[in-house]
Amino acid sequence: MGEPLKFHFEVDGENFSSAGEASVMVKKKLRQLGFSPEIMRRVSIAMYEGEINMVIHADGGTADVTVSDTEIEIVLKDKGPGIADVERAMQEGYSTACDNIRALGFGAGMGLPNMKKYSDYLHIDSEVGVGTTVTMRINLN
């Protein structure tokens, strides 16, 4: 492939309806690039959960996707409230989302566990009051 391909997206925090549009775009690009359904699904689900999190908790942010010969990297960056206890946030079923988010079908405490499940590498860099950066990588070999 040579030079890695880079995609940048702004994730609108105001509009729950549009959450996930960047992930749909990425899935489309990966399909055009000829990736397997399994890789497309893992990348798009991991990114989609991250996007939903940014909209629910952090008033949006940015998403950067880099496709290289060996891996696909997704970096999600927000200036939201930060995650006070990352270890706890990683537990299945733990959520700080309120009832109106649950009524929309999210906030089951599965977002971060799903991101971990579908990626090969997950790192969360978060500071309360400053923001959160989530880095995920999916191996291509």
Partner: peptide, 26 residues
């Protein structure tokens, strides 16, 4: 719960739901 669909479902062809918002389609 869409997060549960994303967590547990593998190769399902059909989703039965009573939830109405665009995230169901996504």
């Amino acid at each position: 719960m869409m997060s549960d669909v994303l967590a547990y479902v593998k190769d399902q062809g059909v989703l039965v739901t009573g939830l109405i918002n665009p995230q169901v389609i996504r």
